[in-house]
């Protein structure tokens, strides 16, 4: 059993809004092991990004615990020690808005080094080294993010995240704004960095085909709760939660081999309810085709059906 790097326990993040309390993340637990890629999948509004933001300290948890290498980090970013920030980094979804358009690429990549007190000439050397790592030419140093392509911007964002030599990187939909050929390039680079730099990833995406190819373990989120967690292979070969089946059977694929691995068609119906006014019992019951009376009343517990495969569904807990 490999060592755990991040442990999340009963994490809750609620937001108080004018319309009521939004339970963006509601009581989820998972662990990320050293050197693995933990994939978090779900549709928009399911709480994937909120989970990541809470983990990174951008939000302070409403309840629950997060620990990193055994150290409690369930506090906001301001209370976290500087050395911790060096180890945990993040790449955001849209490089167009996560890079300051007024700064040059050099200034952007340099900033985390400056924060962590690296001397000026050292910094320049490191920035050039980072640019080489992400295969961008050196003369990009003085360019501004608006002058380069979307894929290149994301490479700059990755270089910035790697600047401080982190051990844990959160990737929040790093390629969803890009074309497939650029996506392939970036994902391959990320996999290469994971091996050479010994990184652990929390990888967030709504693209299940991509997830199949990058994650070691996958967790599915629906309305702020995790409904299934399993090693990637098992997850795709033996999906158990009705939502997982619906999601998998809805993926558009291009080859016959892929068609063959999809579960039998579960006709998707209904829409994701508003997180302010969540359904009673199991959150998924209004869209579920295996729904029983019990599902409408009680929220099912998370059970371990087989080692490492957790499912939150009444049909499996009997």
């Amino acid at each position: 059993m490999s060592k755990e790097i991040v442990v999340v326990k009963d994490l809750k993040k609620w937001f108080d809004t004018d319309e009521g309390i939004v339970r963006a993340v509601d009581d989820i637990s998972f662990t990320i092991n050293e050197g693995e890629t933990f994939g978090l999948v779900g549709e928009s509004g399911s709480g994937k990004s909120t989970t990541a933001y809470t983990l990174m300290g951008i939000y302070t948890p409403t309840a629950g615990e997060i620990s990193y290498k055994g150290m409690d980090i369930s506090m906001g970013i301001k209370q976290r020690p500087l050395s911790l920030k060096k180890e945990m980094q993040m790449v955001f979804q849209d490089p167009g808005s996560s890079l300051n358009p007024k700064r040059s690429i050099e200034q952007i990549i340099e900033l985390p080094l400056q924060v962590h007190g690296i001397a000026k000439d050292e910094r320049r050397k490191r920035v050039i080294e980072l640019l080489q790592m992400v295969e961008l030419p050196e003369d990009y140093l003085d360019r501004q993010p608006t002058k380069i392509g979307g894929g290149e911007k994301q490479m700059v964002a990755i270089a910035r995240a790697l600047a401080t030599n982190p051990t844990f990187v959160t990737l929040d939909e790093p390629t969803s704004a890009l074309d497939v050929s650029m996506q392939a390039k970036i994902i391959n680079k990320l996999i290469e960095f994971q091996e050479t730099l010994d990184l652990s990833y929390l990888f967030i995406t709504h693209n299940l085909s991509l997830m199949r190819n990058v994650a070691t373990r996958v967790g599915i989120m629906y309305l702020g709760k995790l409904c299934e967690v399993a090693p990637t292979g098992t997850f795709f070969s033996k999906p158990l939660h009705p939502y997982t089946k619906m999601l998998l059977s809805s993926i558009p694929v291009i080859t016959r081999e892929e068609e063959a691995v999809k579960p039998d068609k579960v006709v998707s119906m209904g829409e994701i309810p508003s997180p302010v006014n969540v359904p009673s019992g199991c959150y998924f019951h209004p869209r579920c085709n295996e729904c029983t009376e019990r599902c409408k009343r009680e929220d099912p517990p998370m059970v371990e059906v087989e080692p490492g495969h957790f499912v939150k569904c009444h049909t499996l807990s009997e």
Binding site: V180, Q183, A184, I187, N188, I191, N207, L208, S209, L210, R212, N213, V214, T232, G233, F236, I251, V253, I254, T255, E257, E258, V261, K262
Partner: peptide, 9 residues
């Protein structure tokens, strides 16, 4: 295109 059958990117 990433494939659902796996096998890397």
């Amino acid at each position: 295109v990433p494939k659902l059958t796996g096998g890397g990117i």
